[in-house]
C-alpha cells in the first residue's frame, strides 16, 4: 500500500448490520496490518488520539445502516475519503443476507469476508471513489411523536393512509403510494424491494409489491385503486430511501387513479392516521409493560 489508510466502522450495537461493519473492519486490519483502526467511540470522546493518523491517512468508512453514523463522524472533519461502504448495498451486491442475529451467523461472516476482500482489491488498484451528495428536498410540516427512543412522523397535509400503514398522495388523477414512517421504523432497515409491473391494474387494498428488511418481508397494501403508471426504480439501488425518507424519496409506485372519490372514504387523513398510529404505539407499549 503506497498511501496510509485507516478504517472507521460504525460499530453499531443494536443491528446485525452494525456488527457486520465492525467485523469487516477487524478483517481488514487482519489482512492489512499497517491499516489503522479508528474506534468511532473513542474518536467521539477523545479525537486528539487520532489527530496524526487522520491527518496522514485516507479513510475507509463503513456504515452499517441508513443512519450512517461513521459517515457523520467523519463529515464533521475535513478528511480524505478512500472508500465509503454501505453494508446493505454490499449485501445486495453479493446477494448475501446477514440475518438479524447480533452474533453473526455463517452468512454474516461470509458477507464480512467478501466485503473486506473487495476493499483490499480496490486498495491495491488505488482507485478513489467519488463522493455522492444527496439532493436536499422540500420540507413540509409533520405531526410528530417520540416513544422511548423512537420517533415517528406523519405529514400534516396531502397524504392519506390505510390501516396497513401505507399512504397515497394524490395529485389530480394520479397519485404516489408508499409506506409510513411508523411502518419503516417497525420493519427496520429495508434491503430489497420488489416493485410492481407498470400497467398492472389494482384494486384498493391489493398487494402492489413487497419489500424485505433485516427483520421481515411485507407487502405494500395499496390505499387506492388504479393502474400502475410508473415505479420508483431508484429503490432497487437505494432501498434504504424507504427508511430515510418514506414520504418523499421512498415513494414506491405511481398510479393513475380509478375511483379515488370512493377509495378516500376508507382512508384516514394525516390527523386521523396520527391518532390511529399513536393508539397503536400506546397499545403495543402497554402490552409490553403488561408482560413485564
Amino acid at each position: 500500500m503506497d498511501k496510509k489508510l485507516c478504517v472507521l466502522p460504525c460499530n453499531g450495537i443494536d443491528k446485525s448490520l452494525g456488527v457486520v461493519a465492525r467485523t469487516v473492519a477487524l478483517k481488514l486490519i487482519e489482512k492489512e496490518p499497517e491499516m489503522n483502526l479508528i474506534c468511532p467511540v473513542l474518536l467521539n470522546t477523545s479525537d486528539e488520539r487520532y489527530e496524526t493518523i487522520l491527518k496522514e491517512s485516507n479513510i475507509v468508512i463503513i456504515d452499517g445502516c441508513m443512519t450512517r453514523c461513521a459517515t457523520k463522524l467523519v463529515d464533521e472533519r475535513n478528511q480524505k475519503i478512500f472508500k465509503r461502504i454501505f453494508i446493505p448495498a454490499m449485501s445486495k451486491q453479493f446477494k448475501i443476507k446477514p440475518g438479524t442475529n447480533l452474533e453473526l451467523n455463517e452468512n454474516g461472516q461470509k458477507l464480512a469476508e467478501k466485503i473486506s476482500i473487495e476493499i483490499i482489491k480496490e486498495l491495491k488498484a488505488s482507485e478513489y471513489d467519488e463522493i455522492s451528495i444527496e439532493k436536499k428536498l422540500e420540507e413540509f410540516d409533520f405531526y410528530e411523536i417520540t416513544v422511548d427512543k423512537y420517533y415517528f412522523q406523519v405529514p400534516k397535509d396531502g397524504y392519506f393512509f390505510n390501516e396497513n400503514d401505507c399512504w397515497v398522495k394524490p395529485n389530480g388523477n394520479t397519485a404516489l403510494i408508499g409506506i409510513s414512517d411508523y411502518l419503516q421504523n417497525r420493519v427496520s432497515d429495508i434491503m430489497f424491494v420488489e416493485l410492481p409491473k407498470v400497467g398492472t391494474e389494482i384494486e384498493q387494498f391489493d398487494d402492489v409489491g413487497s419489500f424485505e428488511s433485516v427483520k421481515t418481508v411485507l407487502d405494500l397494501i395499496s390505499p387506492c385503486s388504479g393502474r400502475i403508471i410508473s415505479v420508483n426504480k431508484d429503490l432497487k439501488e437505494h432501498p434504504e430511501w424507504m427508511n430515510q425518507d418514506p414520504y418523499r424519496k421512498g415513494w414506491f409506485a405511481e398510479l393513475e387513479l380509478k375511483n379515488f372519490d370512493e377509495d378516500w372514504e376508507l382512508l384516514m387523513d394525516g390527523s386521523g392516521y396520527f391518532k390511529y398510529m399513536k393508539e397503536t404505539i400506546t397499545k403495543e407499549k402497554e402490552e409490553m409493560d403488561f408482560k413485564n
Binding site: 460499530n11 453499531g12 443494536d14 467511540v41 467521539n44 470522546t45 453514523c69 463522524l73
Partner: peptide, 8 residues
C-alpha cells in the same frame, strides 16, 4: 442505546 448513533 447505540453508542455510535449516540455520538453521531
Amino acid at each position: 442505546l447505540c453508542q455510535p448513533l449516540f455520538a453521531a
